Amino acid sequence: SEFSSRSGYGEYVQQTLQPGMRVRMLDDYEEISAGDEGEFRQSNNGIPPVQVFWQSTGRTYWVHWHMLEILGP
Rank of each mutant, 00 (worst) to 15 (best):
S43M: 10
W54C: 07
H64V: 08
R24L: 01
T57R: 08
E31Y: 00
R6V: 14
P19H: 10
R6T: 14
G8K: 11
Q51S: 07
G72M: 05
N44H: 14
S56V: 10
E31D: 15
G46R: 15
F53M: 06
T16K: 13
N44E: 07
Q51F: 05
P48G: 06
S43W: 09
D27A: 13
M25L: 11
G72S: 13
F3Q: 06
A34Q: 12
Q14A: 12
P48F: 03
I47Y: 15
H66V: 06
T60L: 14
L68Q: 02
R24V: 02
Q55L: 12
Q51A: 06
S1P: 03
E31H: 02
Y61E: 14
Q18W: 01
G38E: 00
T16E: 08
Q51D: 03
R22S: 05
H66L: 03
H66G: 05
S1R: 09
V63L: 01
I70E: 11
N44R: 15
L68H: 03
S5R: 11
Y29G: 04
A34K: 15
E2W: 09
Q15L: 08
E11Y: 11
P19W: 03
Y9W: 05
H64M: 04
V52K: 05
N45K: 09
Q18C: 08
L68E: 01
E31F: 09
S4Y: 09
Q18H: 10
V23G: 04
S1N: 08
W65D: 01
Y9T: 04
D27F: 14
G38F: 00
P49Y: 06
G38P: 09
G20P: 09
I70P: 14
E31A: 10
N45A: 13
S7I: 12
R22K: 10
P49F: 02
S4K: 09
E31P: 01
M67C: 05
G10Q: 08
Q14Y: 05
G20F: 04
Q15R: 13
E37T: 12
L26W: 06
I70L: 04
W65Y: 08
V23P: 02
E39M: 08
S4Q: 08
Y9F: 02
T60D: 06
A34N: 09
Y9K: 10
V52Y: 01
M67T: 03
R6Y: 11
S5T: 13
W62V: 04
Y12L: 12
P73T: 08
P48E: 04
T16W: 06
E39V: 13
H64N: 06
V13L: 11
Q42F: 04
V63F: 02
M21R: 00
S5W: 09
Q15K: 05
F40N: 07
D28S: 06
E39C: 14
P19E: 07
H66T: 02
S4I: 11
E37C: 07
P48R: 14
D27I: 15
W65F: 07
W65L: 00
S56T: 06
E30D: 10
T57I: 14
V13M: 15
R59K: 10
G10W: 03
P48H: 01
M21T: 08
S4N: 15
R6I: 15
N45G: 08
Q42L: 10
E30A: 08
